[in-house]
Computed example of a mutant assay.
Amino acid sequence: MELSNPRLCFLLLSLLPGLVSALEITSSPTAPLEKASGQSVKLDCQFSLTSSDSGPLDIEWSLLASDNQINDQVVILYSGDRVYEDYYEPMKGRVHFNTPDPKSGDASINLTGLKSTDTGTYQCKVKKAPGIASKKMQLIVMVRPSKPKCTTEGTLEEGKDIVMRCSTTEGTKPMQYKWEKTSDSKLLPSSSVMDPVAGTINVKNVSTSASGSYRCVASNRVGSEECVLYLHVTPPHNTGGILAGSIIAVLLILLLLAIILYCFFRARKNKKYEKEICNEIKEDVPPPKSRVSSARSFSQMGSQRSSVGSMSPSNLHDYTLKSQYSMKSQYDKIPSTEEYDRPPSQAPLPPPTAARMAGPNLSRMGAIPVMTPAQNRDGSIV
């Protein structure tokens, strides 16, 4: 059975008071809010009540957990005409209702001193029996980039490849990096390739014209920071001269070592030779006999002096003559070089004995008595 148009309109009008009397969140849906750390944000939640909503008013703000296994965390609560702000310890003292009396229809809250841990989905739930309504909104707290550091990798020599790098230690991604030259022509080298995400710029076959100052700007949605880099490209070094100098230095060192070793072994050889000569001299030279012969000669002289002291003057004269002739005879017995060369047939006759040459005979011949010291066979004076 089909309903007529009048009856349908009457039915809709009868249901309209029930729909109008329900509690309603009047704030329009908002896009995700992006704020920088340290800033403040207002989470808007406006609501309207009807005469049918006669129960007590409860307003609850909670931070929804990203994992279904974890319970949602209540941030702030209004219940029984009283505000409870210290529900969530990490936000203690940083979350407040926007108005002192939320019953007026404003359940919005303010968050101050935002931190990166405040990022998440927040839910505003308003309850006044029998009505109930809720609203969700997403907050993204981003960290501003810290001051970046500009560095270079590679040899700053003409013809080499270098990399200019820009990096930050803090900052919420996505992060963008931009390089620009601030001196001379303010144009990047023609062979450079820039990566805005990694913050690098590769320069192939760098030339001296690339020298100058460069600036890197690191930015995200909530802020930016920059650093400056000065690039100084030098001409290529004379590698041939360096190599030749190195070779000459090595050769000089080897020559010096060879001279030192030669002098060392030469001195060692001379020292060894002198030691051997000293040992040979000590072995060839017989022990001296002078002390024994001199002792014997002194004893003989002592005996002769004692015998001379006991003689009379006449006997002393005869004794002197005899000693002279005996000494002379001993010296005459020593053969000369010519006698050694003579044949046995030409050997000289023995000298006259002392018996033939008496003292009176010598005095007649005009001899003068001379006293000479006696010697033994090895030449020592007796």
Rank of each mutant, 00 (worst) to 15 (best):
H232I: 08
S323V: 03
K173A: 15
H237E: 15
P348W: 00
D72P: 05
C45Y: 04
S312C: 02
V370Q: 08
T208N: 08
L12Q: 11
N270Q: 15
I281A: 07
E158F: 00
Y262N: 03
A65M: 06
S79W: 06
T234R: 14
G223F: 04
G245V: 02
L3P: 00
P373H: 08
S185P: 02
S312T: 13
I248N: 07
M327K: 12
E89G: 09
K181I: 03
K289H: 09
G154P: 05
Y319M: 07
V141K: 08
E153K: 09
A249V: 07
S37L: 05
P369N: 13
L63G: 01
R266T: 08
S310M: 13
N202S: 13
D195H: 03
A31R: 10
I334C: 00
L261F: 09
S37E: 15
T320F: 01
P344T: 06
L251E: 06
Q138C: 04
Q300D: 05
I260E: 05
Y214N: 02
A107E: 00
E60R: 15
K103H: 09
I260Q: 06
K328Y: 12
A258M: 05
D161V: 04
P288T: 10
T26D: 03
D195T: 02
I25P: 01
P287N: 07
Y319D: 13
V20Y: 10
R94K: 05
W61S: 03
S66N: 15
Q324R: 10
R356T: 11
L139Q: 05
S310R: 15
S290F: 05
N68P: 06
W61Q: 04
N71G: 14
Y340I: 12
A347P: 01
Q69K: 14
P360A: 11
L19G: 09
S167K: 10
P351F: 03
A354H: 05
A31Y: 05
N5S: 11
P288S: 14
R296Y: 08
T30M: 07
G223P: 10
E153W: 03
Y88T: 06
L11A: 14
Q138V: 10
G359E: 09
I260T: 12
I76W: 00
E158M: 01
R305S: 15
M194W: 04
R144M: 09
N68S: 14
R266D: 11
K269R: 15
K289P: 00
L362F: 04
N71P: 10
S183W: 02
T26A: 03
L252F: 12
D341R: 14
A36C: 08
P344I: 11
I59L: 08
